[in-house]
Write a protein that binds this DNA or RNA. Structure first.
Lengths: 129, 129
DNA sequence: ACTTGACTTCAACATATGTTGAACCTGCAC
DNA sequence: GTGCAGGTTCAACATATGTTGAAGTCAAGT
């Protein structure tokens, strides 16, 4: 079944900006790049659902963890308006998988450096000199 | 004591490019931005020590984990030419600490979303409507 | 209906991260 | 000492990620 719920409330650009902690210009930027999705009023103004501020908060942290806006938009592509917890969980799983792989790669390189085999030629002196 | 070692071998831009897997233009870019440090020949050409390719490999992975070139240069700032394993270990520790904090922040936000308290107002409907 | 604050688009600017091309110079092998 | 692969700088270009300002439109209260 579906819970009885009226027309869901929507948010303007500046509301989403305040809720997500970014500038209004950034909200428009994220809309233009598919991180969030606006519907338009009869007068062409953007209206967002409640997930927009949330998407942006996640997007900012994902950016700090190395993902590009394009990658984040792709990650959010399957998300419906006002996503279900299950949809969010799936996004979260894919996101964490991706950033953890990047951290693993970094750690592996760091580990390969100092220890044992000098894969990275640390302090390398030409062996053939 | 110090191990008996002749004048250590140096590397040209294109050698570092090959060893690190980036374009020569990128090697010059990283030099200009302090990720690596060249000495100059009498004829003004760059010469790098063996750590340069290594620094770049780490830098590329650190970038994928969310660090900027400026941040990476700052991280490498304390590193001497041909750094000791101890110096590398210190850099590695600080680097991992930083990226893991970013991942923690992301995970915390994701966790706060789906579960329990709707901090992110998922599927929010105006409570005062 | 008016006013006014918030919205629209678009272009220009700004910073980060490189790449490319021109014009010129070096280093090394012969 | 000559040739030439590869080095130098500098400016322009390119993409990503936004911000700012101008010029005009919308929405909502009075």
């Amino acid at each position: 079944m579906t819970v009885l719920t009226g027309p869901p409330r929507t948010f303007s650009v500046s509301e989403v900006a305040v809720d997500s902690g970014v500038a209004p210009s950034a909200v428009r930027f994220y809309d233009n790049h598919g991180v969030i999705n606006a519907v338009r009023t009869a007068g062409n103004q953007r209206r967002f659902d409640g997930s927009a501020a949330c998407r942006i908060q996640v997007a900012k942290l994902a950016q700090r963890a190395g993902l590009s806006v394009r990658e984040i938009a792709a990650l959010f592509a399957g998300l419906s308006a006002d996503p279900t917890p299950d949809e969010w969980a799936d996004v979260a799983r894919r996101l964490v998988t991706e950033v953890e792989e990047r951290v693993r790669d970094l750690k592996a390189q760091l580990a390969a450096m100092g220890s044992g085999t000098r894969l990275c030629e640390i302090g390398r002196n030409d062996p053939a000199r």
